[in-house]
Lab assay of single mutants.
Amino acid sequence: KITVTFNGEEKARRYYKKMQKHNLKVEIRVENNQWVVHVE
């Protein structure tokens, strides 16, 4: 499981979509004013 933190929504969403293309289970959320993407 990987957790990647971004300081911008745009970058986070781009990464999220990229990971989805690989058929990975991805989850995006905001934690402590940071955009966090969890990849299983």
Rank of each mutant, 00 (worst) to 15 (best):
Lys1Tyr: 14
Lys1Pro: 11
Lys1Ser: 14
Ile2Asn: 05
Ile2Arg: 13
Ile2Gly: 04
Thr3Tyr: 06
Val4Asp: 02
Val4Phe: 07
Val4Tyr: 08
Thr5Asp: 03
Thr5Phe: 12
Thr5Gln: 06
Thr5Met: 11
Thr5Ile: 15
Phe6Ala: 01
Phe6Trp: 02
Phe6Pro: 01
Asn7Lys: 10
Asn7Cys: 12
Asn7Phe: 11
Gly8Ile: 14
Gly8Gln: 15
Glu9Tyr: 14
Glu9Trp: 12
Glu10Pro: 04
Glu10Asp: 11
Lys11Pro: 14
Ala12Gln: 03
Arg13Tyr: 10
Arg14Ser: 10
Arg14Cys: 12
Arg14Leu: 12
Arg14Asn: 10
Arg14Lys: 13
Tyr15Ser: 02
Tyr15Phe: 15
Tyr15Arg: 04
Tyr16Cys: 15
Tyr16Gln: 08
Tyr16His: 04
Tyr16Trp: 05
Lys17Leu: 12
Lys17Met: 09
Lys17Cys: 15
Lys17Ser: 08
Lys18Ser: 12
Lys18Asn: 10
Met19Arg: 01
Met19Thr: 02
Met19Gly: 03
Met19Glu: 02
Gln20Pro: 02
Gln20Trp: 04
Gln20Ile: 14
Gln20Thr: 06
Gln20Asn: 05
Gln20Asp: 03
Lys21Leu: 10
Lys21Gly: 12
Lys21Ile: 08
Lys21Phe: 11
His22Phe: 08
His22Glu: 08
Leu24Lys: 08
Leu24Ser: 05
Leu24Tyr: 12
Leu24Arg: 09
Lys25Asp: 06
Lys25Ser: 08
Lys25Asn: 09
Lys25Leu: 09
Lys25Gly: 04
Val26Gln: 00
Val26Asn: 01
Val26His: 00
Val26Ser: 03
Glu27His: 08
Glu27Asn: 06
Glu27Pro: 00
Glu27Met: 07
Glu27Leu: 06
Ile28Met: 08
Ile28Lys: 00
Ile28Cys: 07
Ile28Leu: 10
Ile28Asn: 00
Arg29Tyr: 14
Arg29Phe: 13
Val30Lys: 14
Val30Cys: 14
Val30Thr: 06
Val30Phe: 15
Glu31Asp: 07
Glu31Leu: 12
Glu31Phe: 05
Glu31Ala: 06
Asn32Pro: 03
Asn32Lys: 07
Asn32Trp: 04
Asn32Val: 05
Asn32Thr: 03
Asn32Arg: 05
Asn32Tyr: 04
Asn33Asp: 11
Gln34Ile: 13
Gln34Pro: 00
Gln34Tyr: 09
Val36Arg: 03
Val36His: 03
Val37Gly: 00
Val37Ile: 04
Val37His: 00
Val37Thr: 00
His38Ser: 15
His38Leu: 15
His38Asn: 10
His38Lys: 10
His38Ala: 12
His38Ile: 15
His38Val: 15
Glu40Ile: 13
Glu40Ala: 07
Glu40Thr: 13
